[in-house]
């Protein structure tokens, strides 16, 4: 691995520690309003200054990292789940189901993502998300999430995930198409393995390496998406801090309080960059593994 990749892994590790330990290491309560201390520039007391309501920006960023990371990771989880399912079915079944599913993928890719996202969010589908708990595979996941986070945040995770599975689906389909003619798969089918068994036991494990690469790259994208939505006021709602909505609050004070805009932006850039670098590192490793003839990674 290159030194860039190592640096990125370190950044992600540090970020994970901060996110987990935020309640103990954040110097202030992220929601504590203190009007006399409003819009203070960075100082030894408040390392990254304070916002319009006198809240400590560093503490808000630390708590915000929890939101941004969970949304990024969960959204990608949803995307991988849906993408793998669609890709497996389309690639393995072929014929009509393949045609219909792949035209759906083409269509979703042809609608500007932000249009789709905003249109769905504008419809305020929070209650529809609760209805998702009855869907077979997604259901338990959504139920678990709702018991743990605010329903609107769960909605963001699910929607961002449901808007970004298309790449994974294409990838898995392509892998399946080439894998299903290989000897070990044919042997399994001849031996009488059910389609379900062939898909889950033989095709899926061998198609997972490129999916892992694209998922890692996807986390960065999902974090960017969350920040855009929150910045537009349609994502995580205040007072819960997220990097995007801290930026949104900073926008009003852009001329007088640069620290409100600079620090959350740098957090986003560092995190997304780290995920992209790790994803790229994994991709290189995977390629080398393939070139060496094995299925390394």
């Amino acid at each position: 691995m290159s030194k860039f990749t190592w640096a990125a892994v370190l950044i992600l590790a540090a970020l994970a520690v901060i996110a987990v330990a935020a309640p103990w290491i954040a110097p202030y309560d992220p929601m504590a309003v203190s009007l006399p201390e409003a819009l203070l520039p960075p100082s030894p007391l408040h390392w990254l200054g304070t916002d319009q309501l006198g809240r400590d920006v560093l503490s808000r960023l630390m708590w915000g990292s929890r939101i941004s990371l969970t949304i990024g990771l969960t959204a990608v989880g949803v995307a991988v789940l849906v993408g793998v399912a669609v890709g497996l079915v389309a690639g393995f079944a072929g014929g009509w189901s393949d045609a219909v599913l792949m035209r759906l993928v083409d269509t979703l890719l042809s609608i500007p993502t932000i249009f789709l996202l905003l249109a769905v969010i504008a419809m305020d589908p929070a209650e529809r998300i609760t209805a998702l708990t009855t869907v077979p595979v997604l259901g338990p996941l959504v139920r678990g999430l709702i018991s743990w986070a605010d329903v609107r945040i769960v909605m963001l995770m699910v929607i961002i995930g449901l808007m970004s599975w298309m790449g994974v689906a294409r990838l898995v389909r392509a892998e399946v198409l080439s894998l299903k003619e290989r000897e070990f798969v044919l042997a399994a089918r001849v031996a009488g393995a059910s389609p379900w068994r062939v898909m889950t036991k033989h095709l899926l494990p061998n198609a997972m390496a490129p999916v892992l690469v694209s998922a890692t790259l996807g986390v960065g994208g999902a974090i960017l998406t969350e920040s855009v939505l929150s910045y537009l006021g349609l994502g995580v709602q205040p007072p819960t801090p997220s990097w995007g909505n801290i930026l949104n609050e900073g926008r009003v004070a852009l001329g007088v309080a640069w620290w409100l805009t600079l620090s959350p932006g740098l957090c986003i850039v560092a995190t997304v960059l780290a995920f992209n670098l790790v994803g790229e590192g994994l991709r290189t490793m995977h390629r080398r593994g393939q070139a060496a003839g094995g299925d390394a990674l």
Binding site: G220, L224, S227, V228, Y231, L247, G250, R251, L254, T261, L262, G265, I268, V269, V272, L273, N276
Partner: peptide
Amino acid sequence: YSIPSFWLALL
């Protein structure tokens, strides 16, 4: 790839 364009716009 990693810079949010709205942040760049704000800067």
